[in-house]
Design a protein around this nucleic acid. Structure first.
Length: 371
RNA sequence: GGACGGGUGGGUGAGUGGCUAAAACCAGCAGACUGUAAAUCUGCCGCUCCUUGCGGGCUACGGAGGUUCGAAUCCUCCCCCGUCCA
């Protein structure tokens, strides 16, 4: 049995402490997964990521298909070997690009036609094609192609996308059954449904009937208020089987992550720590800090005096501000390192709190610190 | 001494009669970022007043005068900078 998901403990809030075993290693949940779209987490070496304690990273089907091409990666020994990352990888299907590249694509029942953002060439991504690519890449966790829509959307629009996502999920499951290897890769279905509670529930139920080894909740945190995100997450999660991992896609801010974990979410990914780092926004135990601000010009303190990361152990705010304003590469590297450490350490603290059954007090401490 | 060219808001630099508190870029100040077309994007950026509004007043395109209803823009003189000629 190459894959195994165990719920080790549950917290009174509903949070779960778990362990997902894959052929490339164990993922302790709740887990945060750094995003490495183009087979690289921007600004960090693989060695850095290992030292930070990243147990799994994301990569993107659409981007790697366009460049360098999934066949090339297969010939290079698969994505793990190609990028020299020995730990688990989750590949997103390109479903998010249906949303984010909306100007460049056309969705039909059969699949999605994209105009490449790189050279304008036209490409067709179907549920089967996405899986063909992901199988070639050899990621541990494989996402089905879904249709992600903006929120708020018209009810009819949300129903259409959720229905199509379910149809695509069925096709994906069937394709994987004949072309995939369940001992090598784990296929996750995705719940859509916009901001409609009932649609979220029925979508989740329909997906569960297809019996996926793991389930994702997608199409959230794309503009709707946080309480709505929580409500939709709860609606979907309440229908998902307790013995399968739950992945809330594309979230979130630290304080929000705590809410999602309390709703029984096991896995999350987000570009926030990496992108914010490149934009000079650093996460600290006291909230966010914009390192370019004038107030840090002569500040000898580390980013966060409660942080044990390599950057906080060595560099001052004044120096990091200087690097950022000078446009130096090192600013990207150090800022990203700190933010990822913050997120990964935050998850370690959450897991510990669940283990000791005091997630609720962990949350009130956090809220007090953030004011 | 002469011939050209030029002096614009913190910087570079557009603007050759009203649409100009003055383009654009940079610098500066602040904010955003949620399955990465993002080391990006947005706002502010002369002073001042208030009932914060496509609001009022003041100051501003080397200096001083002039032409004009109106001048960064036209005229006169002066000062300064650059290149070339003596």
């Amino acid at each position: 049995m190459s894959f195994r998901f165990e719920v080790l403990q549950t917290d009174p809030t509903g949070a779960r402490l778990g362990r997902l075993t894959t052929p490339h290693g164990v993922i302790e949940t709740p887990a945060f997964m750094p995003v490495g779209t183009q087979a690289t987490v921007k600004g960090q070496t693989q060695q850095n990521l290992e030292e930070l304690g990243a147990q799994i990273i994301l990569a993107n089907t659409y981007h790697l298909y366009l460049r360098p091409g999934h066949e090339l990666i297969r010939r290079m020994g698969g994505l793990h070997q190609f990028m020299s990352w020995p730990r688990p990888i989750l590949t997103d299907s390109g479903g998010f690009q249906v949303f984010s590249l909306s100007e460049l694509r056309k969705v039909s029942e059969d699949g999605v036609t994209f105009r490449s953002h790189l050279d304008g060439s036209e490409h067709f991504l179907s549920p089967e094609k996405a899986l063909e690519i992901e199988i070639a890449l050899g990621s541990d966790i494989v996402m089905v192609l879904d249709e992600c829509i903006e929120t708020p959307s018209q009810d009819a629009r949300a129903r259409e996308a959720a229905g199509r996502t379910l149809a695509w999920a069925r096709r994906s499951r069937d394709y994987f059954a004949t072309h995939g290897d369940p001992g090598r890769q784990m296929l996750f279905g995705i719940v859509q449904g916009g901001t409609d509670r009932d649609l979220r529930r029925t979508s989740a139920q329909a997906l569960v009937d297809m019996d996926f080894p793991g389930y994702a909740i997608g199409g959230l945190a794309v503009g709707e208020p946080h309480p709505v995100t929580c409500e939709m997450t709860e609606a979907a999660a309440s229908r998902l089987p307790a013995d399968r991992p739950r992945y809330l896609m594309g979230v979130g801010k630290p304080e929000q992550i705590l809410d999602y974990v309390s709703l029984g979410v096991d896995m999350m990914d987000c570009v926030l720590p990496t992108r914010s780092a490149r934009h000079g926004c650093l996460f600290t135990s006291h909230g966010r800090l914009l390192i370019r601000n004038a107030q840090y010009a002569e500040d000898p303190r580390p980013i966060d005096d409660n942080c044990a990361c390599a950057v906080c152990r060595r560099y001052s705010r004044a120096y990091l501000r200087h690097l950022y304003r000078s446009g130096e590469f090192l600013a990207v590297i150090l800022n990203t390192h700190h933010n990822l450490y913050f997120y990964l350490d935050f998850m370690r603290q959450i897991r510990k709190a669940i283990e000791f059954g005091n997630l609720e007090s962990f949350r009130s401490d956090l809220q007090a610190r953030l004011g």
